[in-house]
Nucleic acid binder design. Structure first.
Lengths: 215, 215
DNA sequence: GCTTGGCATGAACGCCCGTTCAGTTAATCA
DNA sequence: TGATTAACTGAACGGGCGTTCATGCCAAGC
């Protein structure tokens, strides 16, 4: 076989995925043509088919890789011992990870409708796996009496939504750094499940300060 | 002029907007053709141009009407006197209004990128007006010592995001009714800004129970 | 019952679509 | 140096795109 060192394919492949990601996120899957992606890379449309079976696979692979990177990164994240510590770690991690790749996040949330049914099911399964990670933290804290949670699923969805929502308004160079935003959200999430408010004063104990005082 | 009573236009116009709304929401603006909208209505593509200047205006009008209905509905909503009561009213209203028109909500959030710049600016202004309504409630409650808010803007965005997030998972006929979801979220939102948690015990006073006990 | 005009057709405009494939190029190995 | 082959081109396929417009239909008003 010829041409190994400095192979063009090792460059062109990632360039195509990057261009597709950016264009899909900015204009929508249905509004972006293969010719436009190719032009962005500096190549003819036909060349794209050396790297992807078709347009649908290109979209699916972008979303699959994103979700698997998300799960892998969370698995590798230091999480702490107690449920409050793990919840704060989740909030900080989620915001950091998502702010680092806004286009992939936008794509993964907005273009689910553009996936063929079996591809949709696979991405949906990965998303539920990630939500399960948060749900486990909440359930553990609830059982330990460290959290007060009216409804586990609704609380899980609320937290995911408010954390992911950061991507819709955060702008680099704005009033707050990413880490500052992460801290404030870790605090807000803690308050959302804090047991010591209102009539639940009975839960107040030594764990207070684990997740509040860091703000 | 001829043909006034039972005019076809009074039927076809709304049908076109409904078909466009549904198709745009399900497949994306860029992926839906004028011919497909026309087919849904049972008309030829050319007839659409008796009702809209072009495809872009069709999208913009759907989003503009949605946002203006949202603002008008909130303006007409009974809101209560105190900040905690107004916040709970906002949460219940937001969830009810948004669950009643999931396609319009999806469109208004997902297809901002498909708007021409001046149309985008107009929709964005309406959205900020709505966010301002929530921000005012939070600011008033903060000044009155009824809320503890680390960051007004981040709290506003968090609440909007978690409330709107309901649309991504709520399914009719599921475990909870719309009203039950509204109540649980009103409670979660209240806890997010509650002053009496952790080291802020000093704020605890007669207002406790205004917004917690209703759950 | 004839005229009027609101409502719609359907053909046409020039252009872009996703995908395939025979052919060209050029870097590498024998 | 010549053979090999990965990487890419460019044309072609059938079809769909947004929009315009000359034309026609038919219910309402006189």
């Amino acid at each position: 076989m010829a041409r190994k060192t400095g192979s063009r394919a090792e460059i062109t492949g990632p360039l195509i995925r990057q261009a597709a990601l950016s264009l899909f996120a900015r204009h929508g899957y249905g509004a972006v043509s293969m010719r436009r992606i190719a032009a962005e890379v500096g190549v003819q449309a036909g060349a794209l088919y050396l790297y992807t079976r078709d347009k649908q696979s290109l979209l699916f692979e972008l979303m699959r890789v994103h979700m698997e990177e998300l799960l892998a990164a969370w698995a590798a994240e230091p999480k702490g011992e107690t449920a409050p510590a793990r919840l704060a770690a989740f909030a900080r991690f989620h915001i950091r990870f998502h702010l680092e790749r806004p286009e992939a996040v936008f794509l993964a949330y907005m273009e689910l409708r553009s996936l063929a049914p079996e591809n949709f099911a696979r991405i949906e399964a990965l998303r539920q796996q990630y939500e399960g990670e948060l749900a486990q933290i909440l359930a553990a804290g609830q059982q330990a009496g460290q959290f007060r949670i009216a409804d586990l699923r609704l609380t899980t969805m609320s937290i995911i939504a408010m954390l992911t929502g950061v991507n819709t308004w955060y702008r680099e160079g704005g009033r707050l750094s990413r880490d500052e935003v992460g801290e404030i959200y870790a605090d807000m999430v803690a308050r959302l499940v804090a047991p010591e408010s209102g009539d639940a004063r009975v839960y107040a104990g030594e764990h207070i300060g684990d997740h509040i005082a860091e703000k």
